[in-house]
Design a binder for these strands. Structure first.
Lengths: 252, 252
DNA sequence: CGGACCATTGACCATAGTCAACCGCCGTGG
DNA sequence: CCACGGCGGTTGACTATGGTCAATGGTCCG
């Protein structure tokens, strides 16, 4: 599976975590050192493979190292509702840190690598270094804000707007982690899965996608997004990145 | 404005917080004592009054003491998208603890009382008593789970199912805080606002509500819900309370 | 008494869902 | 090597759910 640029960019767990947390939180040397001492178990997942399932009680929490994973829940007739997508540095099952049972599943979309960090170890760090706890907490609050925005997206915006908003968000998030090159980024979803993520049928997804492509703003084919006109997309999607709250937030 | 039973149930801030946190977190005596020492500023809101607005940078975080408040965002043409509702003991603007600017507004639905606790004070407690931090964090994770469930609700369930699911959740949450009496609880929303919360028009809301009422499972009129058949509602709404994760979670 | 708000209902319309057919690509197996 | 099947993408025809608009009645309040 080739990735954009095919660079074997081997970031370590702590590099990824520090890069992501560093987007919004200021960490002192001690906190960084503590994060560097984290141990974890690496999981390589194939496309579609589940990482954790609804109802399970994980004893560790994972950070995405590479690739894309998604949360999902089951609907009637084998259908799925994808709830969110997660890129390197994110914590798709942070919930498990404080809530015993998973209320959703997490699976890899393309190939993906995750690092599972034992809860014990994280809690120990949180106690010893509140700054780290606050940074990860902040991360989970941004995740929550993204979910809230999704509510508005699926319930109040029509098909084209919904897609435009979604792609704007994805582009924004990937760019923040330097995962966009010349407007191109990996996003290993089929149109059918995209529909299950945005609450529309395959047919509508395809038609609205065709319309967007016709506007020249973006392309999406075979798990790869090409953004040609970010401003147009943002406008079309009524996209305002405030909810993702980029930039350092405060001293704590 | 009379409330169910008209009892002047004056719970103090710490009583409300401890009752709510106690649903899922075990707090030691020191943590409880620290919470009891919290100071706050009480805000009495009238129906529809905003507590905090999109874009603002609060210096305190609020806990609902009494009544119902809701998060909302603005849509085109003065319409709103209500994002979530909050009952006593909940933290509608917990986001502000770690993210500077609000990405949504919070308003009172009926009359409501909130307690604003300065961020400084909370952070100090979090540092000194990690258990308190973890309990509030847990609270915000449950809040996030409720938002995720809302995604499924508005994007995958038809009108009647959506309403049934929503009322099941509300009933469950209010019952947990002893705010239901004989199946009756206050829920100061008009049908129009309920529509803006569940992503449907006033007309649909009314029609589906009429259908539900015809089934005898519930009534909803003038801001008051009466649940007559909880089991039926849960079934009709495909409701599984797992996501709210009731009960003590663990020692930390 | 008039106005505002809420609830209700009917008529009409539009967006999006369902179903089905077709194409191209790719990997497998005869 | 080619035939086949599966999957992803594309498109058309039909349908249905729910949105829009409009009118009505009730209640509360100034």
């Amino acid at each position: 599976m080739s990735r954009i640029g095919d660079k074997p960019k081997i970031m370590s767990l702590s590099d990824v975590i520090l890069k992501k947390l560093g987007r919004h939180s200021k960490l002192d040397a001690q906190s960084k050192a503590a994060i560097r001492r984290l141990t974890c178990q690496v999981h390589e997942l194939s496309p579609g493979e589940d990482f954790v399932r609804h109802g399970e009680r994980p004893r560790s929490a994972a950070v995405v190292l590479e690739g894309v994973v998604a949360r999902y829940g089951a609907l009637q007739k084998g259908r799925r509702q994808y709830l969110s997508v997660h890129f390197p540095g994110e914590w798709p099952d942070a919930r498990s840190l404080f809530l015993k049972r998973m209320d959703h599943s997490v699976c890899a979309m393309g190939n993906a690598t995750l690092c599972a960090i034992p809860h014990d170890e994280l809690l120990k760090i949180f106690r010893a270094h509140p700054r780290v706890a606050f940074a990860v907490w902040r991360e989970t609050l941004i995740d929550a804000a993204i979910s809230r925005e999704a509510i508005t997206n699926v319930s109040a915006r029509d098909g084209v707007t919904r897609l435009a908003h979604f792609f704007s968000e994805i582009f924004h998030r990937l760019a923040a982690m330097s995962l966009v090159e010349n407007g191109v980024c990996d996003f290993p979803f089929s149109q059918s899965q995209l529909g299950e993520l945005l609450g529309m049928s395959l047919a509508s997804t395809n038609r609205h996608l065709t319309a967007l492509r016709a506007s020249g703003a973006l392309e999406f084919l075979h798990g790869r997004i090409t953004i040609r006109d970010q401003a147009f997309l943002a406008k079309q999607g009524e996209f305002d990145p405030l909810y993702m709250q980029d930039g350092i937030q405060s001293g704590h």
